[in-house]
Design a protein around this nucleic acid. Structure first.
Lengths: 154, 154
DNA sequence: ATGTCTGCAAATCCTTTGCATTTTA
DNA sequence: TAAAATGCAAAGGATTTGCAGACAT
């Protein structure tokens, strides 16, 4: 399964700027800036939507680095908040560059198109969990539907 | 890892009634009502929160049926809407009796404990996608945090 | 220098599949 | 008795781990 769609500068914002921010963050957290990691970040920054570790590996060019390195690097980058994980159906995991703004996407069930939604009201979403005494909250969400285009034609 | 917590009649509603409804639904869909399946439904109905296939297998008593049967039955029951799947971290899947009410859960990152949250305000969640013209919406969400217990001890 | 990454191979975990046998409707 | 479900063994896919060598800082 593949999840990439075009090369239009990520799903939001300016790729170069985001790469810079990512590198800064890595240095802050004393992660080493290596060729495989830069390659991974580049691939993610060029993708309009989240990619699996395998997608990243393949899109970087198979010889660029090992698949294991993709997993390890994506994990490391996620720990420092540069990358965001999305757990998806059938136990798969997708990764995307974390944008400064927390938001979600709608995925069209028919054509696979992905659209960004307005920033998420985190406190409203996580509030009930907070009320139960949970701390250090995060959440992942995927919204599915049929896009206007597919509804009209398809 | 284990996820069961207590035997207080499922995460909502009356266990016996829910079992009845489940059986009715199975017959409607020409699923056969077998001992393993009833055992699975009983275990789920007695659990306050979602269980993994292994949890179900263990709680039913290891000799009751094969783990593979747990997977297959849970899958079949999910297809007819009697059971609901929740995908959580590390590629794991938890199952719960489907309740009429749409809701989400908080998962403790440390101990894996899962707690049900109040009913979800679907319109608020899916509203932004609706506004973009998407139809036939659904969504999945998982909230992660550290439960009060783990925060106090670990 | 030195603590981090990386590649490679092998392991692990969860889940699914194949097939012969048993069971339900 | 015919279709569906089960058990057992084995396969499968995604992700992780161990370890020696390579690399960034």
């Amino acid at each position: 399964m593949s999840h990439e769609h075009g090369h239009e500068d990520g799903c939001c914002g300016d790729a170069a700027r985001r790469l810079d921010a990512a590198v800064t963050r890595m240095r802050e957290k004393s992660l080493r800036v290596t060729a495989p990691r830069m390659s991974i970040l580049r691939v993610l920054s060029e993708s309009a939507n989240p990619l699996s570790a395998e997608d990243v590996h393949r899109l970087a060019g198979h010889g660029a680095f090992d698949l294991v390195t993709a997993y390890r690097s994506l994990g490391a980058l996620e720990e420092v908040g540069v990358v965001q994980r999305h757990r998806i159906e059938r136990g798969k995991t997708l990764y995307a560059l974390a944008s400064g703004h927390h938001h979600h996407h709608v995925v069209c069930r028919r054509c696979g198109r992905v659209e960004r939604l307005p920033d998420c009201d985190i406190s409203r979403i996580e509030g009930p969990a907070w009320a139960k005494g949970y701390a250090d909250l995060t959440h992942v969400m995927e919204i599915y539907g049929v896009c206007p285009n597919c509804a009209a034609n398809g």
